[in-house]
Simulated assay, not measured.
Amino acid sequence: MDVVIGADQDGFAMKEKVKDYLKQRDYHVIDVTPQPAKNFVESALAVTKEVMAGKAHKGLMFDRYGVGSTMAATKVKGMVATNVGDETAAHQTAEHNGAKAIAIGTGLIGLDRALGLIQRYLDAEYVDGRHQVRLDMLAKMI
C-alpha cells in the first residue's frame, strides 16, 4: 500500500518514527515533508494533493493537535480526513467514512498509541454501501 505522510515542525519527530515503522512493514512511503513544513497548512495540503491525485491510497498528517491539518485538508473539495485519537475512530473513519487521510496530534498522543491507531486505519477498507450516501452528501457541499 502507498501511504503519503507529512508534518509541520511540531509533528516532524513522530512522522520520522512512523515512517520507519511503515517501511519495516513494507508500506511504500511517500514523504512530502523530508524537512518539516513551516506550518500545518503546507504539510496537510501536500499530503492531500498526493492522495487526491491517486499517488497514495491513504495519508497521514502530523501536527501538534491534529485539528489544524484536518481543517486544512478538508478545505479541498472531495477530501475526507479526520483527526483521530483512538483506534476505534481510526478504523471506523476508514471503513464507514472512506477517510483518505487521518491527522495525529503529536502533542496529545504518544508514539505507541499513534502506531496502534495508524495500523487500525491502514488495515481498514471502505465498505461502501449505505455509507456512500453520506459521502455523496458531503461531495455536494460547497
Score class of each variant (00 low, 15 high):
residue 38 K to C: 05
residue 18 V to L: 07
residue 54 G to R: 02
residue 30 I to M: 06
residue 66 G to R: 09
residue 126 Y to K: 02
residue 105 G to Q: 01
residue 20 D to Q: 15
residue 120 R to W: 08
residue 40 F to M: 10
residue 94 A to Y: 00
residue 141 M to V: 11
residue 101 A to D: 09
residue 6 G to A: 10
residue 79 M to R: 02
residue 57 H to N: 13
residue 25 R to L: 15
residue 136 D to H: 07
residue 97 N to G: 08
residue 29 V to K: 07
residue 113 R to V: 13
residue 104 I to C: 00
residue 67 V to D: 01
residue 20 D to G: 13
residue 131 H to Y: 14
residue 108 L to R: 13
residue 6 G to N: 12
residue 128 D to Q: 14
residue 42 E to W: 11
residue 122 L to G: 01
residue 15 K to G: 12
residue 91 H to N: 11
residue 93 T to E: 02
residue 96 H to G: 12
residue 9 Q to G: 14
residue 69 S to Q: 09
residue 20 D to S: 15
residue 66 G to D: 13
residue 52 M to F: 11
residue 5 I to M: 02
residue 101 A to G: 04
residue 56 A to D: 02
residue 16 E to G: 04
residue 63 D to K: 00
residue 131 H to V: 06
residue 75 K to H: 13
residue 34 P to F: 00
residue 134 R to D: 03
residue 75 K to F: 10
residue 50 E to I: 01
residue 100 K to V: 03
residue 122 L to E: 06
residue 25 R to F: 10
residue 16 E to F: 06
residue 133 V to M: 14
residue 14 M to P: 02
residue 27 Y to A: 07
residue 37 A to I: 06
residue 98 G to A: 06
residue 16 E to S: 04
residue 3 V to N: 01
residue 111 L to G: 01
residue 92 Q to G: 01
residue 139 A to D: 13
residue 35 Q to I: 00
residue 77 K to T: 00
residue 19 K to I: 13
residue 4 V to R: 05
residue 8 D to S: 00
residue 125 E to R: 10
residue 97 N to M: 05
residue 89 A to D: 12
residue 120 R to Y: 10
residue 105 G to T: 02
residue 101 A to N: 06
residue 78 G to F: 08
residue 132 Q to S: 09
residue 9 Q to M: 11
residue 17 K to H: 14
residue 127 V to W: 14
residue 53 A to S: 14
residue 49 K to I: 13
residue 83 N to A: 11
residue 80 V to R: 15
residue 98 G to K: 03
residue 43 S to N: 08
residue 47 V to Q: 08
residue 103 A to S: 09
residue 82 T to A: 15
residue 61 M to P: 00
residue 112 D to N: 05
residue 50 E to A: 08
residue 67 V to R: 01
residue 85 G to D: 09
residue 54 G to D: 10
residue 107 G to I: 03
residue 22 L to F: 05
residue 12 F to E: 05
residue 48 T to D: 08
residue 21 Y to S: 09
residue 32 V to F: 08
residue 18 V to R: 02
residue 46 A to D: 11
residue 9 Q to I: 15
residue 29 V to S: 11
residue 121 Y to L: 05
residue 117 L to C: 04
residue 51 V to E: 07
residue 8 D to Q: 05
residue 8 D to W: 00
residue 81 A to G: 11
residue 90 A to Q: 09
residue 118 I to R: 09
residue 17 K to R: 11
residue 123 D to P: 04
residue 129 G to K: 14
residue 78 G to P: 01
residue 54 G to C: 03
residue 79 M to Y: 07
residue 17 K to M: 10
residue 34 P to T: 04
residue 140 K to I: 11
residue 50 E to Q: 14
residue 45 L to M: 02
residue 117 L to Q: 06
residue 93 T to D: 03
residue 117 L to W: 00
residue 12 F to R: 11
residue 96 H to V: 00
residue 103 A to W: 01
residue 103 A to D: 05
residue 24 Q to F: 06
residue 23 K to V: 10
residue 112 D to M: 03
residue 104 I to D: 03
residue 32 V to D: 03
residue 115 L to W: 13
residue 142 I to L: 08
residue 87 E to P: 14
residue 69 S to F: 08
residue 25 R to P: 02
residue 118 I to S: 09
residue 139 A to L: 02
residue 103 A to H: 09
residue 49 K to E: 14
residue 81 A to E: 06
residue 36 P to W: 09
residue 117 L to T: 08
residue 116 G to L: 00
residue 103 A to P: 14
